[in-house]
Write a protein that binds this DNA or RNA. Structure first.
Length: 433
RNA sequence: GGAGAGAUGGCCGAGCGGUUUAAGGCGCUCCCCUGCUAAGGGAGUAUGGGGUAUCCCCAUCGAGGGUUCGAAUCCCUCUCUCUCCGCCA
């Protein structure tokens, strides 16, 4: 949610920005109409409440003196009815305004380039150079099948399309990736490891901005029946960021830095026919996620730090990548600024997203009511929240398979992972049944 | 799953229909006193919102409804915590 005080004061300017940056049409007339009504209603309600409180007090004192208060009591009944009516009207206006405000996307950071879609993203830098293969490079699906360690067919038998089954060394390599990333971020980058629920209440999704959705598509998986208010997390961002929901964090604890490994569940509604084969786009995948809860003055700088942490992993895995700043049209609803890390995919000869690092500034914090106590004033202020994938595990696995293959279909295991693989240097047919 | 007990400010804890404007204590901040330390005295100490804004008002006692002129207090529903029994990784 954006700052309402700011919105009310500079409504024309902010409406213009929302339209220019996001193509979001804010109904200024309607909003102002509702605001005026809300304000007058609120004054009426509070006035009636004030009268009620005073009258009740006087009545109480008279009763204590032993006076008969039945007539006065009866006379006050009408005020109670009027109050209830006014309260109901106020509530209706408030929820209408609330729904409107929840639908407004975040304002973008000035450094975000203008643009419509991913074609307009700004490439910041490259690292590494894509391998030039002296043979025809295979995609990860054929490589995995040849190794008998990747099985989409049996996965489909269990759960349908967009699920995977891994065997043997490939399954172990996925586990090694998770371990390596968690260990690196905790030992080298100062994050605390955190284990969180994979099922969360809907309110958590409002907090981080996945809900409300105005598209038809429902991106998340929800449970039915007795637990129907629970949803499978689409990313660890949701449970981890919601840890500070409603809290006032002591100043000296900032920044809070958490790293979590979780599976992620996405319906992928709206991406029918896109990336239907292999590990690229699945309903269930593993991810190691970084989350920071920071002082407002630090978030801009800490976004760069998070990107650095994700880049470090890619470098250690010896994978060529580039860093892009998402343009205005490609930046997510809640984000003020997002960097994507894109890893080279030899079979497609393009860079594909493997990490997304965002600064949400106070947008999520306002929804979450996540604050810290300002040292100077002693008053609570909204924190800033950031997160970054570091990395998407399934895509890292895929990238390793494709970038580190040789002409015999063996796959080189990056040296940083070998300690997690009993010093094994390659994936080959030995690791499967 | 069965039986019972709870949820009050940063913390402990009283209140069980109207002198509560949430007692009292602890902690914290500032001031005073005491030549250090300890002890003592005084003041302050939630969050959100509104207004005729150095002041006033409204809301919040786990959450949501209800009863009442008036609810922390009574009733209903839900959530969570604790104790005992059962079951279980």
């Amino acid at each position: 949610m954006i700052d309402l005080q700011q919105l009310r004061q500079n409504i024309e300017m902010i409406a213009a920005r929302l339209y220019k940056e996001r193509g979001f049409k804010l109904d200024v007339i309607e909003m102002q109409r509702l605001e005026v009504q809300r304000k007058t209603r609120q004054i009426i309600v509070q006035d009636l409440q004030h009268k009620r409180n005073k009258a009740a007090k006087v009545l109480g004192q008279e009763k204590a003196k032993g006076l008969d208060i039945r007539d006065q009591s009866k006379a006050l009944k009408q005020d109670g009815v009027a109050l209830k009516v006014a309260q109901t009207e106020l509530q209706a206006l408030q929820s209408e305004l609330e729904a409107l405000y929840l639908s407004i996307p975040n304002l973008l950071h000035p450094s975000v380039p203008n643009g419509k879609n991913s074609n307009d993203n700004r490439v910041e830098r490259h690292w590494g150079t894509p391998n030039i293969f002296t043979f025809t490079a295979k995609d990860h699906l054929s490589l995995g099948r040849a190794l008998k360690q990747l099985d989409m067919e049996r996965a489909a038998k269990l759960s349908g399309a967009r699920f995977s089954v891994l065997y043997g060394d490939l399954a172990r390599l996925q586990r090694a990736l998770i371990q390596f990333m968690l260990n690196t971020h905790t030992a080298n980058h100062g994050y605390q490891e955190v284990y969180v629920p994979y099922l969360v209440k809907k309110t958590c999704l409002y907090g981080t901005g996945q809900l409300p959705k105005f598209k038809e598509d429902d991106e998340e998986f929800s449970l039915a029946g007795a637990y129907c208010d629970l949803t499978l997390i689409p990313t660890a961002e949701v449970p981890v960021t919601n840890l500070v929901c409603g809290e006032i964090i002591p100043f000296e604890q900032l920044p809070l830095k958490w790293v979590a490994h979780t599976p992620c569940f996405r319906s992928e509604a709206g991406s029918y026919g896109k990336d239907v084969h292999g590990l690229l786009r699945m309903h269930q995948f593993e991810k190691v996620e970084l989350v920071q809860i920071t002082h407002p003055d630090q978030s801009e700088h800490l976004l760069e730090e998070i990107v650095g942490h994700a880049e470090f992993i890619l470098q250690q895995l010896e994978l060529p990548y580039r860093v892009v700043t998402l343009c205005s049209g490609d930046t997510g609803f809640s984000s003020a600024k997002t960097y994507d890390l894109e890893v080279w995919i030899p079979s497609q000869k393009i860079y594909r997203e493997i990490s997304s690092c965002s600064n949400f500034e106070d947008f999520q914090a306002r929804r979450l009511k996540a604050r810290f106590r300002d040292q100077a004033t002693g008053k609570p202020r909204l924190v800033h929240t950031l997160n970054g994938s570091a990395l998407a595990i399934s895509r890292a696995l895929l990238a390793i398979m494709e970038n580190h293959q040789d002409e015999n279909g063996r796959i080189y295991i990056p040296s940083v992972l070998q300690p997690y693989m009993n010093q094994q240097s390659h994936l080959d047919n030995q690791g499967s049944k």
